Amino acid sequence: MNLYFLVEGKRTERKVYPAWLKHLLPELQQVQNYDEVNKNNYYLFSAEGYPSIIYDPLPNAIADINANGKYNYFVVCLDAEENTVRCIQQEIYDFLTAEKIQMGNTQLVVIIQNRCIETWFLGNTKIYSRQPQSKSLLDYTRYYDISVNCPELMGKYDKFNTHAQFHEAYLKELFRAKNINYSKKNPGDVLKLYYLEQLLKRIEDQSSHLPSFQNFINFCNIIKSKLNS
């Protein structure tokens, strides 16, 4: 079983996915070059963001996959940002169709982080402050209480240009209230098992929450079952 991951972020995703895969799929070992895969390996390449990831790294990755011939899955992970999950997925499929790009025996899996990967991180209710002290966090909580409501459905607070900017700012305020640092360059605690376990608990307790994160977890469960069969 070999997987090729193409992720959007140069900083956060290239650290988060390997850390989480160690927890979720410890049977898989990461390789540093795409042509080093043999058995139960994965390769991860981080691109420069949307939309360039679709029109340059995506076809290049497929060319490498087809030339190698050992990959079972090609997993593309990117943010929805201001678009819908379906819109981003369709853009990828339309591009592949228009360019007549074939995947051969490798299965394409598209994971859309809705709205961004920080939105997923907001699913950990343990980082929520019951009595926010900072004005910003109090304002954010009054606008949308992520401890009760699905983070993926949260809108955009007025002073921010995009949903992703607001979701990241909300996360940082929650972390700051717990004396924890977070940055895209240094995601910190989100890499740890306890943090991932809280996200898994969230979707177990609230089956309608974090649906795009659930897609990632469901995919990992499929791979787990194949590895153990």
Rank of each mutant, 00 (worst) to 15 (best):
N161W: 15
K135E: 12
Y140Q: 03
A169W: 07
N161M: 06
L191F: 13
L153D: 12
R115I: 05
Q198R: 08
N161H: 09
N114M: 04
N149K: 12
G104M: 01
N181K: 08
A177G: 08
A98G: 04
N105C: 08
Q131K: 14
A98I: 11
E99R: 08
K178Y: 15
Q131S: 13
F166G: 05
I111L: 09
P211R: 00
Q107N: 06
A177H: 15
E204C: 02
D145N: 08
S207Q: 15
A164M: 11
I180Q: 10
D189G: 11
L193H: 14
Q133N: 10
T106G: 01
Q165P: 10
I117W: 03
L137G: 01
L122P: 03
E173I: 05
N179Y: 11
V109A: 01
F166Y: 11
Q133A: 10
F175H: 10
E204A: 03
S212M: 02
H163K: 10
L174T: 01
L108T: 01
E152I: 02
E152W: 03
Y143Q: 09
E118A: 04
Y157A: 07
D205S: 04
I180P: 10
I203K: 00
N161K: 09
E99Q: 05
Y194R: 13
S134L: 12
I111V: 07
S134G: 05
Y128A: 15
E173C: 07
Q133I: 07
E197W: 06
Q206C: 08
R130M: 14
E173F: 04
E173P: 01
L174G: 02
T125L: 04
T141P: 02
A164R: 06
I111N: 00
T125C: 12
S129M: 13
N186E: 08
D139I: 06
D139Q: 15
Q133G: 06
M103E: 01
D205I: 03
Q107I: 10
